[in-house]
């Protein structure tokens, strides 16, 4: 029994464990993001891709586009084509159209997701309206480009993938006026 820690030291150590575990709870947030991007969990895609690849003309993949409005979002929102056939490695552009039918200026944020989830890590966006937020005046309509590359290493059994966007109304969080300047500073969102 002579090996036991004095009470004060023991309690201190246990308290440190508590504090560390509280921190661990928060550390799960970045860990989760990294895991999602590494393994495409939840169809999460990474931020802007800067690499370049050569097209693999021997292979074709069908990419389908979906646009959904989150609850309470009134914009009209959709892709200009429902689907495209692309060669892995080639850079392709597709445009999405958004229209604000309401009588007030609004800010929106689009969140992308790729299915099947295991393909998400092989879907690179070099340019995307989802990297920034969109502000539309009443009645305004815009075309928003997405430029993407399907990685040449895409697993062979994936012949068809879906890029889905959900459009959220974030006007209460980012009032349109403030956003104009904030948009430029905006970086981290994918």
């Amino acid at each position: 029994m002579s090996t036991e820690l004095p009470l004060r030291r023991l309690v201190l150590r246990l308290t440190l464990v508590v504090v560390a575990m509280f921190g661990f709870g928060f550390a799960l947030v970045p860990i989760y993001d990294v895991m999602c991007q590494a393994f495409g969990i939840n169809g999460k895609t990474a931020g802007a891709y800067t690499g370049a690849q050569t097209a693999d003309a021997a292979r074709e993949v069908r990419v389908q586009f979906l646009a959904t409005n989150a609850a309470g979002m009134d914009w009209e929102f959709g892709p200009q084509a429902d689907q495209l056939s692309v060669h892995p490695g080639a850079s392709t552009e597709i445009r999405f159209v958004a229209y604000n039918p309401t009588d007030k200026p609004m800010t929106a944020q689009a969140i992308p997701s790729v299915s099947p989830a295991k393909a998400a890590a092989y879907f690179h966006k070099t340019e995307c309206f989802c990297f920034t937020q969109q502000v539309l005046q009443p009645g305004e309509r815009i075309e928003m480009p997405v430029r993407f590359i399907v990685d040449r290493d895409l697993p062979a059994d994936v012949r068809h993938l879906t890029l889905a966007y959900t459009l959220f109304d974030i006007t209460p969080r980012q009032p349109p006026v403030a956003t104009l300047s904030a948009t430029a500073a905006k970086e981290s969102l994918q």
Partner: peptide, 30 residues
């Protein structure tokens, strides 16, 4: 002592999402 702090953490994140404009759990904010 290993998991109650994590519970405290998750409700704290909720609190921040609700009142301080963070987006731990809100897809709209990433």
């Amino acid at each position: 002592i290993a998991v109650m702090p994590v519970l405290a953490g998750v409700v704290t994140m909720m609190l921040m999402d609700i009142h301080f404009g963070t987006s731990f759990f809100s897809a709209a904010g990433g």
